[in-house]
Amino acid sequence: MTFDDRVALVTGAGSGIGRAMALAFAKAGARVVVCDLDAGGAGRTAADLGDAALAVTADIGEESSVAALVEAAIGAYGRIDVLCNNAGIMDTMALPADIPLAQWERVLRVNLTGTFLVTHAVLPHMLSQGGGAIVNTASEAGIRGGVAGAAYTASKHGVVGLTKSVAWAYAKDGIRCNAILPGPTMTNIANGATFDPAGAARLGPVLALGERLAQPEQMADAALYLASEAASFVNGAIIPVDGGWSAA
């Protein structure tokens, strides 16, 4: 699974799963566009990768910011062969009757609309170069109803649907699109979050089933495979990476 002479764009690459993805692609030979809303995080990841990386600060929920991100990537490297739509945020685990509209709109804007905006901006370049691979970070919440709040669950179900739509639409153009569904993973996505008491109590028994925590590198390995030629006939796949949690 080598990526020599290829370019990977990874969103949310300043920490956690995204950082592990950026490191994995660089180790496999790719040049990496390290994107994050946190300029410091993006810079630190890019610095660790050395000359094979470009740090770009972008808000994936804003179309103009995404346009600037893709323009920077193309300006630096001339192509984008791999897109890892990894950036995302948690909700407060609020149940449908309790979630504030502002929280709903923010989570959907980042997790779903953001994934769409970056995909929408990268696709023309992949089409013009004759192919590419997209790996979306969805979630166990993308196939289940009881592991997150209403907003996060809806957003990740949307990412699953978007993944399948892109895979179907561009299969004949050499573009593959797949998604990983991480189970509980050691990241900072929930750092500082205040969870809704009723939602947390309701979801607690299901969350307890996923008591084993994965390392970000285990998610990165799955993304590396899906983007590689080893997965050249894998398209539209929705793959749990959860240690068997989804099998329960």
Rank of each mutant, 00 (worst) to 15 (best):
V166D: 10
V166S: 12
A167C: 12
A167Y: 12
W168Q: 07
W168H: 06
A169D: 12
A169N: 11
A169I: 10
Y170L: 10
Y170V: 09
Y170P: 10
Y170R: 01
Y170W: 12
Y170A: 05
A171S: 14
A171Y: 00
K172P: 00
K172A: 15
K172S: 15
K172V: 12
K172R: 15
D173L: 14
D173C: 12
D173P: 01
D173H: 15
G174T: 02
I175Y: 06
I175A: 09
I175N: 01
R176D: 11
R176C: 12
C177T: 03
C177W: 01
C177G: 06
C177N: 08
C177F: 03
C177P: 02
N178P: 09
N178E: 08
A179D: 04
A179F: 05
A179L: 09
I180P: 03
L181D: 02
L181E: 05
L181Q: 04
L181V: 03
P182N: 03
P182D: 02
P182K: 02
P182W: 01
G183E: 06
G183F: 08
G183L: 04
G183H: 08
P184T: 11
P184E: 03
P184Y: 04
T185I: 10
T185F: 09
M186V: 07
M186A: 15
M186N: 12
M186I: 06
M186E: 14
M186R: 14
T187V: 12
N188E: 13
N188F: 00
N188W: 00
N188K: 15
I189R: 01
I189C: 09
I189A: 04
A190Y: 01
A190Q: 07
A190T: 14
N191R: 10
N191Q: 13
N191W: 00
N191K: 11
N191L: 02
N191A: 14
N191M: 05
G192F: 13
G192D: 10
A193E: 07
A193K: 04
A193L: 10
T194Y: 00
T194M: 11
T194R: 14
F195M: 12
F195T: 06
F195C: 07
D196N: 13
D196L: 06
D196S: 13
D196H: 15
D196M: 05
P197R: 09
P197S: 08
P197D: 04
P197K: 08
P197W: 08
A198Q: 12
A198I: 00
A198V: 11
A198L: 13
A198D: 13
G199C: 09
G199M: 11
G199E: 10
G199Q: 05
G199T: 08
A200Q: 13
A200Y: 06
A200T: 11
A200V: 01
A200M: 09
A200P: 00
A200I: 00
A201Y: 07
A201T: 08
A201V: 00
A201F: 07
A201R: 05
A201W: 03
R202S: 10
R202W: 13
R202P: 00
R202D: 07
R202N: 11
